[in-house]
């Protein structure tokens, strides 16, 4: 790890003032320290935001729903009884992060801002891992890489546990920067980089995420289902989050968002369309799963992920509808 300076401001304004080129935000720090140890990140200044009181806390309000401060840990989210009641999909996503040690310091906002797990990226070959004009991912070991949105040049998968669920619930982020505060939907926050100069999310070096705003669930049935290689701590191989507006026993409208299958959390209008106007059953859920991966394209070693993504969508739908998965 390279040497750096360290500062611990107590207001978000002073944090923003310190940020900029060469500076990074430290919250839970799990991912940042890992990147610094691998020399993938080598900041001149680390800005610890944990002493900023206004970034703490989680609040529910009748009108505007749930507000998750940037410093709310995965543990705090898991233990909130109203989140448990109204947003099971967030709880199920948090439950997938199987490490008490990470839950106690890791933040929900940090989960969104963690960098991809692509092993080429983590070994210093860049987000796009291009060498001599061709992709190391396409030519190499791509078993954990993208099956959707993988037309290139990006092949990594979005690593966030919460993003699919937050997008399905229609959440947005508050971001503070030198020009004040702005709001951006979680769906628009993520992007597929077209060059090494671009990041996989829209947050400049001088901006910080300050809050996550989740609209009131308003009786929407919601669930997340992850498929993973092992019980212990790991990132899922595929995940899906679903949010359903029901009318009687029929789906009036649906949002289906897949995780860990594309460079961005993958919104599937096809799966949502397959649910519209139907009563949820195992076969309807299965059709939606098939629709979700209709456009999927395997790389040389990740065909298995197409089947996993299909099943994740099916099971997330059944789980949201309160049926046996």
């Amino acid at each position: 790890m390279n040497r750096f300076q360290y500062a611990s401001p107590v207001t978000k304004e002073s944090a923003v003032e310190l940020l900029g080129s060469g500076a990074v935000v430290l919250a839970g720090g799990t991912d940042l320290l890992s990147l610094m140890k691998a020399d993938v990140a080598s900041p001149d200044l680390v800005v610890n935001i944990k002493e900023i009181a206004e970034l703490k806390g989680l609040e529910h309000s009748e009108g505007s729903g749930l507000r998750i401060g940037a410093l709310v840990t995965i543990d705090e989210l898991l233990q909130d009884s109203r989140v448990q009641e109204e947003y099971p999909s967030l709880i199920q996503a948090a439950d997938g992060i199987r490490s008490a040690q990470i839950r106690s310091v890791g933040t929900v906002a940090g989960d969104l801002c963690q960098r991809p797990r692509c092993w080429y990226y983590r070994h210093g070959y860049g987000l796009l891992a291009m060498q001599n004009g061709s992709s190391m991912v396409v030519d190499g070991d791509n078993r954990y890489h993208a099956i959707l949105g993988n037309g290139g040049p990006a092949y990594f998968v979005n690593p966030s546990s919460f993003a699919p669920s937050l997008i399905a619930l229609g959440a947005s982020l508050k971001v503070s920067g030198p020009n004040g505060e702005k709001e951006i939907s979680v769906a628009d926050f993520f992007q597929t980089p077209q060059s090494e100069a671009e990041k996989e999310y829209k947050l400049s070096d001088s901006e910080i995420v300050t809050q996550i705003l989740v609209p009131a669930a308003g009786g929407k049935a919601n669930a997340t289902y992850e498929i993973r290689e092992k019980e212990a701590l790991d990132w899922p191989l595929a995940a899906a989050a679903v949010s359903l507006v029901m009318q009687g026993d029929q789906v009036e409208s649906a949002k289906v968002v897949l995780g860990h299958v594309a460079p961005v959390p993958w919104n599937s209008d096809e799966a949502a369309a397959a649910l519209k106007g139907k009563a949820v059953s195992a076969s309807v859920a299965d059709d939606a799963g098939k629709a979700a991966v209709q456009q999927a394209k395997a790389l040389s070693r990740n065909k298995f992920k197409i089947q996993l993504a299909r099943v994740a969508v099916k099971r997330a739908i059944l789980r949201a509808a309160g049926m046996e998965v």
Binding site: Y6, S8, L26, G29, T30, L33, S34, V46, N48, K50, D75, A100, Q101, I102, S104, V105
Partner: peptide
């Protein structure tokens, strides 16, 4: 609370 001491800065 349990934490990974390898992933916390001493100064924090």
């Amino acid at each position: 609370k349990p934490v990974y001491a390898c992933s916390i800065l001493a100064i924090e």
